[in-house]
Nucleic acid binder design. Structure first.
Lengths: 157, 157
DNA sequence: ATTGAAAGAGTCTCAGT
DNA sequence: ACTGAGACTCTTTCAAT
Protein backbone atom coordinates (compact mmCIF):
# COMPACT_ATOMS: atom_id res chain seq x y z
CA UNK A 1 0.00 0.00 0.00
CA UNK A 2 1.47 3.35 -1.06
CA UNK A 3 0.68 6.70 0.48
CA UNK A 4 0.47 10.22 -0.91
CA UNK A 5 3.01 11.46 1.65
CA UNK A 6 6.14 10.08 3.25
CA UNK A 7 4.35 7.76 5.63
CA UNK A 8 5.91 4.40 6.34
CA UNK A 9 5.02 1.32 8.32
CA UNK A 10 6.35 2.71 11.62
CA UNK A 11 4.26 5.88 11.24
CA UNK A 12 1.14 3.82 10.68
CA UNK A 13 1.93 1.61 13.65
CA UNK A 14 2.27 4.69 15.84
CA UNK A 15 -1.03 6.06 14.55
CA UNK A 16 -2.67 2.69 15.10
CA UNK A 17 -1.51 2.42 18.71
CA UNK A 18 -2.37 6.01 19.55
CA UNK A 19 -5.76 5.88 17.88
CA UNK A 20 -7.14 3.93 20.80
CA UNK A 21 -4.85 5.42 23.46
CA UNK A 22 -3.30 8.77 22.68
CA UNK A 23 -1.84 8.92 26.19
CA UNK A 24 0.66 6.08 25.81
CA UNK A 25 4.22 7.19 26.62
CA UNK A 26 6.86 7.43 23.91
CA UNK A 27 9.06 5.09 25.94
CA UNK A 28 6.40 2.38 26.12
CA UNK A 29 5.38 2.85 22.51
CA UNK A 30 9.03 2.56 21.47
CA UNK A 31 9.39 -0.69 23.37
CA UNK A 32 6.27 -2.06 21.69
CA UNK A 33 7.50 -1.15 18.20
CA UNK A 34 11.19 -2.01 18.79
CA UNK A 35 12.61 1.50 18.37
CA UNK A 36 13.87 4.10 20.87
CA UNK A 37 11.63 6.68 22.53
CA UNK A 38 13.58 9.35 20.66
CA UNK A 39 12.52 7.89 17.33
CA UNK A 40 8.86 7.87 18.40
CA UNK A 41 9.25 11.49 19.40
CA UNK A 42 10.72 12.48 16.02
CA UNK A 43 8.04 10.59 14.09
CA UNK A 44 5.14 12.08 16.03
CA UNK A 45 6.60 15.55 15.60
CA UNK A 46 6.89 14.93 11.85
CA UNK A 47 3.32 13.60 11.62
CA UNK A 48 2.09 16.68 13.43
CA UNK A 49 4.00 19.03 11.12
CA UNK A 50 2.70 17.17 8.07
CA UNK A 51 -0.85 17.57 9.37
CA UNK A 52 -1.41 13.81 9.49
CA UNK A 53 -2.01 13.98 13.23
CA UNK A 54 -4.35 16.85 14.08
CA UNK A 55 -4.40 16.51 17.86
CA UNK A 56 -5.93 14.53 20.69
CA UNK A 57 -9.43 14.55 22.07
CA UNK A 58 -10.89 13.40 25.33
CA UNK A 59 -13.51 10.67 25.09
CA UNK A 60 -16.29 11.72 27.43
CA UNK A 61 -19.32 9.85 28.73
CA UNK A 62 -21.91 12.40 27.63
CA UNK A 63 -24.72 11.07 29.82
CA UNK A 64 -22.52 11.53 32.89
CA UNK A 65 -22.20 15.26 32.24
CA UNK A 66 -25.88 15.78 31.56
CA UNK A 67 -26.16 15.31 27.80
CA UNK A 68 -28.82 12.69 27.26
CA UNK A 69 -29.77 13.16 23.62
CA UNK A 70 -27.72 12.35 20.52
CA UNK A 71 -29.40 12.87 17.16
CA UNK A 72 -28.64 13.17 13.47
CA UNK A 73 -30.32 15.73 11.25
CA UNK A 74 -30.70 15.22 7.52
CA UNK A 75 -31.02 18.59 5.82
CA UNK A 76 -32.64 19.33 2.45
CA UNK A 77 -31.52 22.60 0.86
CA UNK A 78 -33.59 24.76 -1.48
CA UNK A 79 -30.52 25.11 -3.69
CA UNK A 80 -27.20 23.34 -3.14
CA UNK A 81 -25.40 26.63 -3.73
CA UNK A 82 -26.67 27.72 -0.32
CA UNK A 83 -24.41 25.20 1.35
CA UNK A 84 -21.73 27.63 2.57
CA UNK A 85 -24.19 30.11 4.01
CA UNK A 86 -26.24 27.43 5.80
CA UNK A 87 -23.06 25.86 7.20
CA UNK A 88 -22.08 29.22 8.66
CA UNK A 89 -25.43 29.47 10.45
CA UNK A 90 -25.26 25.90 11.76
CA UNK A 91 -21.77 26.52 13.14
CA UNK A 92 -23.32 29.09 15.47
CA UNK A 93 -25.44 26.43 17.19
CA UNK A 94 -23.08 24.95 19.80
CA UNK A 95 -25.05 21.73 20.17
CA UNK A 96 -24.31 20.84 16.55
CA UNK A 97 -20.96 19.08 16.79
CA UNK A 98 -20.49 17.91 13.24
CA UNK A 99 -21.63 18.85 9.77
CA UNK A 100 -21.05 17.16 6.42
CA UNK A 101 -21.90 18.16 2.91
CA UNK A 102 -23.40 15.01 1.47
CA UNK A 103 -24.78 13.31 -1.59
CA UNK A 104 -27.60 10.79 -1.33
CA UNK A 105 -30.79 11.28 0.65
CA UNK A 106 -29.79 14.68 2.05
CA UNK A 107 -27.80 17.73 0.98
CA UNK A 108 -26.26 18.14 4.40
CA UNK A 109 -26.01 15.95 7.40
CA UNK A 110 -25.53 17.15 10.97
CA UNK A 111 -24.91 15.55 14.35
CA UNK A 112 -26.31 17.19 17.45
CA UNK A 113 -25.88 16.62 21.19
CA UNK A 114 -28.47 18.04 23.60
CA UNK A 115 -29.16 17.93 27.32
CA UNK A 116 -32.69 16.64 26.80
CA UNK A 117 -35.38 16.24 24.16
CA UNK A 118 -36.77 19.66 25.02
CA UNK A 119 -33.53 21.31 24.01
CA UNK A 120 -33.47 19.33 20.75
CA UNK A 121 -37.06 20.28 19.94
CA UNK A 122 -36.28 23.93 20.64
CA UNK A 123 -33.33 23.95 18.23
CA UNK A 124 -35.30 22.11 15.52
CA UNK A 125 -38.23 24.51 15.79
CA UNK A 126 -36.69 27.83 16.71
CA UNK A 127 -33.23 27.78 15.17
CA UNK A 128 -33.28 25.51 12.13
CA UNK A 129 -36.62 26.74 10.81
CA UNK A 130 -35.27 30.27 10.61
CA UNK A 131 -32.16 29.47 8.63
CA UNK A 132 -32.54 30.78 5.08
CA UNK A 133 -31.92 28.05 2.53
CA UNK A 134 -33.09 25.02 4.50
CA UNK A 135 -36.10 23.46 2.81
CA UNK A 136 -36.82 20.82 5.45
CA UNK A 137 -35.09 18.52 7.91
CA UNK A 138 -35.42 14.94 9.06
CA UNK A 139 -34.41 13.99 12.58
CA UNK A 140 -32.92 10.64 13.48
CA UNK A 141 -32.63 10.13 17.24
CA UNK A 142 -30.09 7.67 18.59
CA UNK A 143 -31.58 5.40 21.22
CA UNK A 144 -28.31 3.63 21.83
CA UNK A 145 -24.76 3.69 20.54
CA UNK A 146 -23.80 0.10 19.71
CA UNK A 147 -20.15 0.95 19.19
CA UNK A 148 -17.78 3.74 18.23
CA UNK A 149 -14.15 3.03 17.36
CA UNK A 150 -11.27 4.50 15.40
CA UNK A 151 -10.51 3.17 11.94
CA UNK A 152 -8.29 0.12 12.06
CA UNK A 153 -5.16 1.11 10.13
CA UNK A 154 -3.28 -2.09 10.94
CA UNK A 155 -4.54 -3.78 7.78
CA UNK A 156 -2.81 -1.12 5.71
CA UNK A 157 0.61 -1.88 7.16
CA UNK B 1 -27.16 22.96 36.50
CA UNK B 2 -27.10 19.80 38.60
CA UNK B 3 -25.44 16.54 37.63
CA UNK B 4 -26.27 12.92 38.32
CA UNK B 5 -22.81 12.35 39.84
CA UNK B 6 -20.42 14.37 41.94
CA UNK B 7 -19.23 16.62 39.17
CA UNK B 8 -18.50 20.24 39.96
CA UNK B 9 -17.46 23.31 38.05
CA UNK B 10 -13.75 22.48 38.15
CA UNK B 11 -14.39 19.00 36.73
CA UNK B 12 -16.34 20.49 33.86
CA UNK B 13 -13.67 23.08 33.20
CA UNK B 14 -11.07 20.30 33.02
CA UNK B 15 -13.26 18.32 30.64
CA UNK B 16 -13.85 21.42 28.55
CA UNK B 17 -10.15 22.23 28.20
CA UNK B 18 -9.15 18.65 27.48
CA UNK B 19 -11.95 18.08 25.00
CA UNK B 20 -10.06 20.10 22.42
CA UNK B 21 -6.56 19.24 23.66
CA UNK B 22 -6.20 16.12 25.74
CA UNK B 23 -2.42 16.55 25.73
CA UNK B 24 -2.26 19.70 27.88
CA UNK B 25 -0.06 19.23 30.96
CA UNK B 26 -1.55 19.14 34.44
CA UNK B 27 0.75 21.99 35.41
CA UNK B 28 -0.46 24.25 32.61
CA UNK B 29 -4.07 23.28 33.10
CA UNK B 30 -3.74 24.04 36.81
CA UNK B 31 -2.34 27.48 36.06
CA UNK B 32 -5.23 28.15 33.69
CA UNK B 33 -7.85 27.11 36.24
CA UNK B 34 -6.09 28.58 39.31
CA UNK B 35 -5.43 25.32 41.15
CA UNK B 36 -2.32 23.21 41.63
CA UNK B 37 -1.20 20.50 39.25
CA UNK B 38 -1.81 17.99 42.04
CA UNK B 39 -5.48 18.94 42.18
CA UNK B 40 -5.83 18.48 38.42
CA UNK B 41 -4.21 15.08 38.79
CA UNK B 42 -6.63 14.00 41.54
CA UNK B 43 -9.68 15.25 39.61
CA UNK B 44 -8.74 13.53 36.37
CA UNK B 45 -8.08 10.30 38.25
CA UNK B 46 -11.51 10.58 39.88
CA UNK B 47 -13.24 11.31 36.56
CA UNK B 48 -11.55 8.25 35.06
CA UNK B 49 -12.63 6.02 37.93
CA UNK B 50 -16.18 7.36 37.72
CA UNK B 51 -16.24 6.53 34.00
CA UNK B 52 -16.89 10.15 33.04
CA UNK B 53 -13.65 10.26 31.07
CA UNK B 54 -13.28 7.16 28.89
CA UNK B 55 -9.87 7.85 27.36
CA UNK B 56 -8.12 9.86 24.69
CA UNK B 57 -8.14 9.47 20.94
CA UNK B 58 -5.83 10.70 18.26
CA UNK B 59 -7.39 12.98 15.67
CA UNK B 60 -6.09 11.77 12.33
CA UNK B 61 -6.28 13.29 8.87
CA UNK B 62 -7.85 10.27 7.16
CA UNK B 63 -7.06 11.38 3.62
CA UNK B 64 -3.37 11.57 4.52
CA UNK B 65 -3.29 7.89 5.44
CA UNK B 66 -5.17 6.77 2.36
CA UNK B 67 -8.79 6.79 3.49
CA UNK B 68 -10.65 8.91 0.98
CA UNK B 69 -14.27 7.95 1.53
CA UNK B 70 -16.50 8.75 4.50
CA UNK B 71 -20.11 7.66 4.30
CA UNK B 72 -23.19 7.11 6.40
CA UNK B 73 -25.46 4.12 5.95
CA UNK B 74 -29.11 4.19 6.95
CA UNK B 75 -30.31 0.66 7.63
CA UNK B 76 -33.89 -0.64 7.48
CA UNK B 77 -34.47 -3.85 9.43
CA UNK B 78 -37.06 -6.51 8.62
CA UNK B 79 -37.94 -6.64 12.32
CA UNK B 80 -36.48 -4.35 14.98
CA UNK B 81 -35.91 -7.37 17.20
CA UNK B 82 -33.05 -8.30 14.85
CA UNK B 83 -31.06 -5.32 16.08
CA UNK B 84 -28.60 -7.19 18.31
CA UNK B 85 -27.81 -9.86 15.74
CA UNK B 86 -27.29 -7.33 12.93
CA UNK B 87 -25.09 -5.18 15.18
CA UNK B 88 -22.91 -8.21 15.85
CA UNK B 89 -22.43 -8.77 12.12
CA UNK B 90 -21.66 -5.10 11.43
CA UNK B 91 -19.04 -5.06 14.19
CA UNK B 92 -17.09 -7.58 12.15
CA UNK B 93 -16.66 -5.12 9.27
CA UNK B 94 -13.62 -3.05 10.31
CA UNK B 95 -14.47 -0.13 8.04
CA UNK B 96 -17.68 0.50 10.00
CA UNK B 97 -16.50 2.74 12.82
CA UNK B 98 -19.77 3.62 14.48
CA UNK B 99 -23.24 2.17 14.82
CA UNK B 100 -26.35 3.60 16.43
CA UNK B 101 -29.76 2.14 17.09
CA UNK B 102 -32.08 4.86 15.93
CA UNK B 103 -35.65 6.03 15.65
CA UNK B 104 -36.80 8.14 12.70
CA UNK B 105 -36.05 7.37 9.07
CA UNK B 106 -33.91 4.32 9.79
CA UNK B 107 -33.73 1.50 12.33
CA UNK B 108 -29.97 1.67 12.51
CA UNK B 109 -27.42 4.16 11.40
CA UNK B 110 -23.78 3.39 10.62
CA UNK B 111 -20.68 5.39 9.77
CA UNK B 112 -18.10 3.87 7.46
CA UNK B 113 -14.59 4.87 6.39
CA UNK B 114 -13.10 3.33 3.22
CA UNK B 115 -9.93 3.71 1.18
CA UNK B 116 -11.87 4.41 -2.00
CA UNK B 117 -15.33 4.15 -3.52
CA UNK B 118 -14.55 0.66 -4.78
CA UNK B 119 -14.05 -0.59 -1.26
CA UNK B 120 -17.33 1.04 -0.16
CA UNK B 121 -19.23 -0.52 -3.08
CA UNK B 122 -17.78 -3.92 -2.26
CA UNK B 123 -18.93 -3.73 1.38
CA UNK B 124 -22.39 -2.49 0.40
CA UNK B 125 -22.86 -5.25 -2.17
CA UNK B 126 -20.97 -8.19 -0.76
CA UNK B 127 -21.14 -7.79 3.00
CA UNK B 128 -24.30 -5.86 3.87
CA UNK B 129 -26.54 -7.69 1.41
CA UNK B 130 -25.72 -10.98 3.08
CA UNK B 131 -26.55 -9.95 6.63
CA UNK B 132 -29.78 -11.64 7.72
CA UNK B 133 -32.31 -9.11 8.97
CA UNK B 134 -31.33 -6.10 6.87
CA UNK B 135 -34.20 -5.17 4.57
CA UNK B 136 -32.42 -2.44 2.66
CA UNK B 137 -29.87 0.34 3.10
CA UNK B 138 -29.44 3.92 2.00
CA UNK B 139 -25.98 5.35 1.52
CA UNK B 140 -25.10 8.96 2.21
CA UNK B 141 -21.62 9.87 1.00
CA UNK B 142 -19.81 12.80 2.58
CA UNK B 143 -18.27 15.09 -0.01
CA UNK B 144 -16.79 17.38 2.60
CA UNK B 145 -16.68 17.71 6.34
CA UNK B 146 -17.63 21.31 7.21
CA UNK B 147 -16.67 20.96 10.84
CA UNK B 148 -16.29 18.46 13.66
CA UNK B 149 -15.89 19.61 17.25
CA UNK B 150 -16.45 18.39 20.79
CA UNK B 151 -19.55 19.46 22.68
CA UNK B 152 -19.08 22.82 24.36
CA UNK B 153 -19.58 22.10 28.06
CA UNK B 154 -18.62 25.60 29.16
CA UNK B 155 -22.22 26.77 29.01
CA UNK B 156 -23.11 24.22 31.66
CA UNK B 157 -20.69 25.65 34.17
C1' DA C 1 -10.24 18.65 49.22
C1' DT C 2 -6.06 21.39 48.17
C1' DT C 3 -1.23 22.54 48.43
C1' DG C 4 3.79 22.46 47.89
C1' DA C 5 7.70 19.83 47.72
C1' DA C 6 10.30 15.63 46.81
C1' DA C 7 10.87 11.46 44.15
C1' DG C 8 10.20 9.18 40.11
C1' DA C 9 9.12 8.98 35.17
C1' DG C 10 8.84 10.94 30.80
C1' DT C 11 10.11 14.24 27.07
C1' DC C 12 13.24 16.54 24.20
C1' DT C 13 17.74 17.53 22.28
C1' DC C 14 21.95 16.40 20.36
C1' DA C 15 26.45 14.37 19.40
C1' DG C 16 27.81 10.04 17.52
C1' DT C 17 26.99 6.45 14.27
C1' DA D 1 17.53 8.00 10.10
C1' DC D 2 18.25 5.87 14.66
C1' DT D 3 20.39 5.59 19.29
C1' DG D 4 21.63 6.58 24.01
C1' DA D 5 22.61 9.78 27.38
C1' DG D 6 22.00 14.26 29.60
C1' DA D 7 19.09 18.23 30.69
C1' DC D 8 14.81 19.47 31.47
C1' DT D 9 9.86 19.11 32.43
C1' DC D 10 5.96 16.71 34.06
C1' DT D 11 3.53 13.37 36.87
C1' DT D 12 2.65 11.27 41.12
C1' DT D 13 2.75 10.81 45.97
C1' DC D 14 2.34 12.49 50.51
C1' DA D 15 2.61 15.09 54.87
C1' DA D 16 0.51 19.26 56.32
C1' DT D 17 -3.43 22.18 56.32
Amino acid sequence: MSHPLNIDKLDLQIISEMSTDAGISYAELGKKLFVSGGTIHVRIKKLHEMGVIKGTRLQVNLRAIGYDVLAFIGIYLEKSSLYESVAKQLLKIPQIVRLNYTTGSYSMFAEIICKDSGELRKILQDDLQHIKGIERTETIISLEESFSRPINVSEVI
